[in-house]
């Protein structure tokens, strides 16, 4: 319409504005009423920014580092050194692919044990050289494969939780998309847990939960509701520290804006965390996780 108005010189501005306003209003209306299962689907939107998009968008310098020095390099996890403005940091995150080939190469963002071991190796470099750690979480789960079991998927995740709890540098975790279970938590222990508005994070995927408790994966939407998996839920349950607002329509509508929101939040928290003496930082981190849970006695 705008093009038409330009070429013909017909005054359509009012109509365009009116329609745009209406579209915006409708979008806001739809997005304010999304149920949990719809959020899960947004978190999985194929055009959403992935870890590398955030890294490229936030960093003036990034060097990816490869391999766990024991077995292999796991393309499902990206790890490396980066500069975000004037801060030198360690960046780690699960990476999904966009087309069939890259999806397979990235194993759909499902890490193997060597991925978690690589992540920890690079985090420990961070500890050695005093670089804060930023982890970007986006995984449908740790890979449930034969080799993964043989190489100790459980041990790799467990050891990351153990070591990250005491890592002597600030750690910020950002759930940028999917946070599925131990596969997410394996790089998800830190001083601040931030989450994108349309991300989800829980102990199991809604499909997995539905398959077990309802005996039918088709009940995933019920499971998503019951498990309370959205950012808003987790803020209310005091699990996460902050919900990061996404551009209207979701992060896939405007990568630059989504990346800007994440970068701003990371820098803000980083500044705070860097002021805290390391001993206290670690104690606070352990306390933070110790408080999580709900019981009666």
């Amino acid at each position: 319409m705008r093009e038409y108005a330009k070429t013909t010189g017909i005054e359509l501005d009012d109509d365009i504005n009116r329609l745009e306003k209406k579209a915006k209003q409708l979008r806001q209306e739809i997005f304010s009423k999304l149920d949990r299962w719809q959020r899960v689907q947004l978190a999985r939107h194929p055009q959403r920014p992935y870890t590398m998009d955030y890294i490229n968008g936030m960093c003036s310098y990034f060097e990816e580092l490869h391999g766990d020095r024991y077995f292999a390099d796991d393309p499902a996890i990206i790890a490396g050194f980066g500069m975000i403005d004037e801060y030198s940091v360690i960046l780690i995150g699960q990476q999904k692919g966009r087309d069939t080939k890259s999806k397979l190469y990235r194993n759909f963002g499902m890490p193997n044990p060597e991925g978690y071991r690589k992540a920890l190796r690079i985090m420990e470099l961070g500890a050695k050289f005093n670089k804060p750690v930023i982890t970007l979480i986006d995984t449908p789960g740790a890979y449930p494969g034969l080799g993964a079991e043989e190489r100790g998927q459980a041990e790799a995740i467990a050891y990351n939780l153990f070591a990250m709890s005491h890592l002597p540098v600030p750690i910020i975790n950002v759930v940028i998309g999917e946070g599925a279970s131990g596969g997410a938590l394996g790089i998800g222990v830190g001083d601040r847990i931030l989450m994108m508005e349309n991300g989800w994070y829980s102990v199991i995927s809604p499909e997995g939960c539905a398959a077990i408790l309802w005996r039918d994966a088709a009940n995933a939407s019920l499971a998503a509701e019951a498990m309370k998996v959205t950012a808003e839920d987790l803020k209310e349950l005091k699990i996460i520290d902050e919900v990061l607002k996404e551009p209207e329509g979701g992060a896939h509508y405007n990568h630059a804006e989504a990346i800007k929101a994440v970068k701003e939040a990371i820098l803000r928290h980083l500044k705070e965390l860097l002021k805290i003496p390391v001993e206290r930082l670690i104690d606070q981190r352990i306390d933070k996780f110790s408080k999580m849970g709900a019981w009666i006695e």
Binding site: A158, G182, V203, K228, L237, I286, F289, M292
Partner: peptide
């Protein structure tokens, strides 16, 4: 982990490991 407690169950992994 116990699914009925969702994210809380997951976080027990981090808590006990810490």
């Amino acid at each position: 982990a116990r699914m009925h407690e969702g994210i809380f169950s997951l976080m027990q992994m981090a808590k006990t490991s810490a």
